[in-house]
Design a protein around this nucleic acid. Structure first.
Length: 265
DNA sequence: AGGGTCAAGAGGAATA
DNA sequence: TATTCCTCTTGACCCT
C-alpha cells in the first residue's frame, strides 16, 4: 500500500473512484463483513497436489510425523478438547468425517473426561512444525477441499475438524489484520480529503473576493476567466467570436491559468 | 490480576 | 438437505 495504484481495484465506495472487485468469493467476504473493507486482501491461489511447492509440504509433513512426542501429545489434547463439550452438531460433523476411524473416535470419547472425572476443556497448542505446515498450506490455498483436509489432517496427526477450524480461524485473523490496515488507510484518506476541502474553501473565498473587485465584464465563470501572466490581458477559452459581444481586438483573451499558467497565450 | 492469543463451540447464511 | 464458511463467543493458556 502507500499509493493509489496499489489499491486501485478495491470495493471502497467513498467517492474515491475505486472500482469494485468482481471475484465472487472475495465479494462474499466483503459483504459478510460489518466493518469497512477495501477488498485488497491477500490474493490466494488454489493449487493442487501437483504444485511445485507440494514436495516441500510433504517434506514438512514428514518432519511433523517424526515429531512423535508432540504429535501424540496433541492428539491427546485435541481429543479431549474437541469432544468435551460436543453438541449435536459436532457429533454430526464428526460422523461425516469418514476417514476418522472408529478407534480414534472411541479413544476421543474415552479421553473426554479427565483423570479426575471433570469435563474441563483442554487447550490445544499446535507444535511449531504443525503450525508451519498449516501456514505453508494456507499460503497455497486459504480454503481446503475435503481431500486436502484429509491429507493435511493425516500428515499432521490431527483430526480433519481441527484442520478445518485452524483454517477458519486463520482466515478470520487475516481478515481482521486487513481490516486494521484498511482502517489506517481510510484515516489517511480522510485527513487528505479534509485538507483538500479546506484548501478549496480558501480558494473559493479568494475567488469571491476577486469577483467583487472586478468590473462587470470580467465577472465570467472563474474557471474561464483569468489574467494572462505574460501580457496581463484578461482572456477566455473556447467562446464563439461571432456570438461574443467583444471583438478579438477589444475583447480579453481567456484562458485558465489556475492549473497551467505557463500555457497562457 | 488482567490482557492477549488461539483452538474450539455455536448458530446462521450460502450453496450444490 | 448436507456441507462449508463466516462471525461471534468461550475458555484455556501464557505473559507481564
Amino acid at each position: 500500500m502507500g499509493s493509489f495504484d496499489d489499491i486501485s481495484n478495491t470495493g471502497l465506495v467513498l467517492g474515491l473512484g475505486f472500482s469494485t472487485r468482481v471475484d465472487q468469493k472475495s465479494t462474499k467476504i466483503l459483504l459478510a463483513g460489518k466493518g469497512p473493507s477495501l477488498g485488497f486482501e491477500p490474493s490466494l491461489t488454489l493449487s493442487l497436489s501437483g504444485d511445485p511447492t507440494y514436495n516441500e509440504q510433504q517434506q514438512a509433513a514428514k518432519k511433523v510425523k517424526n515429531d512423535h512426542q508432540s504429535a501424540d501429545l496433541y492428539r491427546q489434547d485435541s481429543a479431549a478438547s474437541s469432544y468435551s463439550n460436543a453438541s449435536v452438531k459436532r457429533e454430526r460433523d464428526a460422523g461425516s468425517e469418514e476417514t476418522t476411524t472408529e478407534v480414534e473416535r472411541l479413544s476421543s470419547r474415552v479421553s473426554d473426561e479427565d483423570d479426575d472425572g471433570s469435563n474441563a476443556r483442554k487447550k490445544l497448542r499446535l507444535s511449531k512444525a504443525q503450525s508451519a505446515l498449516l501456514e505453508e498450506s494456507f499460503k497455497q490455498h486459504s480454503t481446503l477441499n475435503p481431500k486436502q483436509k484429509q491429507d493435511l489432517a493425516r500428515d499432521l496427526n490431527l483430526r480433519p475438524r481441527q484442520v478445518e477450524v485452524w483454517f477458519q480461524n486463520r482466515r478470520a485473523r487475516t481478515k481482521l489484520k486487513q481490516t486494521e490496515v484498511d482502517c489506517e488507510f481510510l484515516k489517511k484518506c480522510c485527513e487528505t480529503l479534509t485538507e483538500e476541502n479546506r484548501r478549496l474553501h480558501k480558494e473559493l473565498q479568494e475567488l469571491k473576493a476577486v469577483k467583487i473587485a472586478q468590473p462587470l465584464y470580467m465577472q465570467l465563470p472563474a474557471a474561464t476567466l483569468t489574467m494572462c501572466p505574460s501580457c496581463e490581458r484578461i482572456g477566455g477559452v473556447g467562446e464563439n467570436p461571432s456570438k461574443n459581444p467583444f471583438t478579438l481586438a477589444q475583447k480579453p483573451h481567456f484562458y485558465n491559468s489556475f492549473t497551467n499558467p505557463s500555457a497562457a497565450c
